[in-house]
Design a protein around this nucleic acid. Structure first.
Lengths: 232, 232, 232, 232
DNA sequence: CATGAATGAGGCTTCATTCAT
DNA sequence: GATGAATGAAGCCTCATTCAT
């Protein structure tokens, strides 16, 4: 995650709710609403003008709040980007996460999950135009995100998935990082391209990418007939 | 009311070389040297701190010249980035250009040229860390480059090549833009990943990318027996 | 090529008072105070060092505010001068404007009004040292002022008055512009001269100028008996 | 003379020729040519863009010489303006100077000399647009000019002339300074106005000014019949 | 806690002046 | 002496951040 400033171990911002409270107080909910508003606004503005081109004032204006209010929720500009990438990043991650009803067959499973990701991107174009510029598709990026407190990240999960594919003998036994980069890069570029004209159906593009990737990464010699997940 | 400001476009400083001079004068050469020095410095500084993080002062310092001198060669900061992307971009393009001794066979030719590109990137890591952030791999980016006066651009050539592959029946007949994006994205990501640790051999990565891509994009000739795989 | 700069006209900050407010809000009043403070400071500094010699920092310092604050009220340095000339210019204009209790007789009226102007200048020496350098006395200047949004301007009114005098047969029927220039120039020079030493009583100078001008511009009516004087 | 910087007793620039040389050497003549070229160029550029708007580079370009060369003749920008005002100012002064064939009658003499001045301005519009902005018409200005080494100055001569007119009983016995200011201001304004449209015939304007002034300043009671100069 | 004006460090750019050729 | 590129001090303006209300 391209932190604009150097990473300093920022004190964990204690999120409203204290441990022990059974449900969010009215105050906490209000906080959450404002916070979310800032993030949504920032998403738009970052997407439009880029991180440096976006002024706090712009974000505040878009969120219909005062500049000072922004600072009640984020210590500095940089933190907004961080939060945005981290939290939205987790959503991506969640979209990509395996689900109970995912097919058992590896390739189908792969298709399903990646396609789900594209569908998600379809819905959140705005965010992705920001995210893509800030490394959400980069595996290297993952580490930083984790430090920032994110639990999961998409490249990480992707790697896991690809590793599994390799173990199952479906995918070529290559350095999984390589595969992640390759696929991540292709996805990113496809996304960015599609973002230019709103019309494009991202799911369609997704199928293309998946197909290309699978053909490319499929193991040459089916040394193992197993195509189903053996273990969790 | 007497506006104090009366911006009139100051007369253009006449650009170096005069028509008719058969070879560059000493003056022109000196100019070229300084200009190049600025660009080289800018490349480093941009790579290190990003465009916005880079101050003209930094660039000047790195180039061992005064701030004002930078402005003898570039009208504004932005122009430095432009020149960098345009001129270096042309180098990439040139590296990718077909050569007399390129193999005749499409796939070999493809390999050769793309590999040459990776070799080139190997040599100019610094620049690419900048370029990649500024769309040198994006086909959409190409148009803008052309407007900026660049003669050729890599994505454009890539598209041409892929189109040719399709016509030859070697590659799948898909929208070439899609293929360009896909490959461009994969290359970009691979490059970026490799840039993190200097050790990585980019040519090696290049072979991987080429292989992945070719497998993925190869036309599935219905007449020829399926080459490598089965699918669910 | 990804131009880093993407100048979009930033949304306009909404100007103070909203339509419908019957009287200025506290906010608007505060704004007015700051604005006035900047103008007053600018007046001094401009007078002291001239427009170009005056640094924003100087103005801010004199106004006891921060540099940035200046820019909360004026978009650029130039705008300060504009506002100064326009708004103060309107004051002059207002001082010169006809009043209910002005004498009916043309010459007396002329005297009264011009003298009022000198009295006003007496009070605002600082400003006039700026204004005189920027054409407040020039009729040509008037047009620009009007464009800038000023409702009235002194040279314009002066012209009107002189034209009236001509129609009444009191003044010579000459091109009024000429008369305006002549009188304006004389006033300006007299003012500037008097500004050098604070002591001079401007009203006294005013009477001199009026007298000189009237004698010079009075119509030589062959029919009417000469009013005040004989001539060679 | 509005010196842009503070007046510091600059060392007298030793003008080429050394005492004792009977006529200017070739070198001195060359120097004089360059120097004059700079001044002429500066005149134009100052007139066009004002002192602050004029860059040394502009002046050099207009003079078809190199920037550095300018500095061989003038220690700093400010000195160019000084020289311009001083030397050209002397020309004005010379134009205004009494001549052998000037009429003996005071009024005629006055007319002749002032008209000569307007004719001169007609010829040197460019310069006057600069000069007028820098106080060549101000009597206060005179002192500074004198310090700068000028032998004579127009306002000074004008004062002398007016004083004489007063002594002769032709003009009202007022503070001559006042009259000088008045006339100088009127002349200046008339000039400036006429400069806007090239068409205007300055001599015509001159006659108007002279007429206006004479009527205004003529002594009311011819307490002395003498109208001819009594002494030099 | 919301507000939004005040703050001032910092960056880009200009241009008078210097200086090596 | 002419040249014109190099120099860098200095000024305008922006905008993240603070703070009084």
């Amino acid at each position: 995650m391209s932190r604009a400033k150097k990473l300093q171990p920022k004190e964990q911002p204690i999120e409203g709710k204290r441990a022990g409270a059974s449900h969010p107080s009215l105050r906490d909910e209000t906080r959450a609403i404002f916070r979310a508003a800032v993030l949504r606004a920032a998403e738009d503005v970052f997407a439009e003008k880029g991180y440096h081109g976006a002024r706090i004032q712009d974000i505040a204006a878009r969120a219909r709040i005062a500049v000072g209010t922004v600072y009640n929720y984020f210590k500095e500009k940089d933190e907004i980007l961080d939060a945005l990438l981290r939290e939205q990043g987790e959503q991506i991650s969640r979209a990509f996460m395996p689900r109970a009803d995912d097919p058992a067959d590896f390739e189908s499973r792969f298709r399903t999950r990646v396609l789900r990701l594209f569908a998600f991107m379809q819905e959140h174009r705005t965010f992705f135009s920001v995210a893509a510029q800030h490394g959400v598709f980069d595996p290297e990026h993952a580490e930083e995100v984790m430090k920032s407190g994110a639990r999961r990240n998409m490249p990480g999960q992707l790697e896991e998935l690809l590793r599994e594919g390799a173990e199952l003998g479906v995918l070529r036994k290559d350095n999984p990082q390589r595969l992640v980069r390759f696929l991540g890069g292709a996805m990113r570029a496809t996304l960015m391209g599609a973002l230019r004209d709103d019309a494009t159906d991202l799911r369609d593009e997704g199928m293309f990418v998946i197909d290309m990737f699978l053909r490319g990464a499929r193991a040459t010699k089916p040394n193992a007939p197993r195509k189903t997940r053996s273990s969790a």
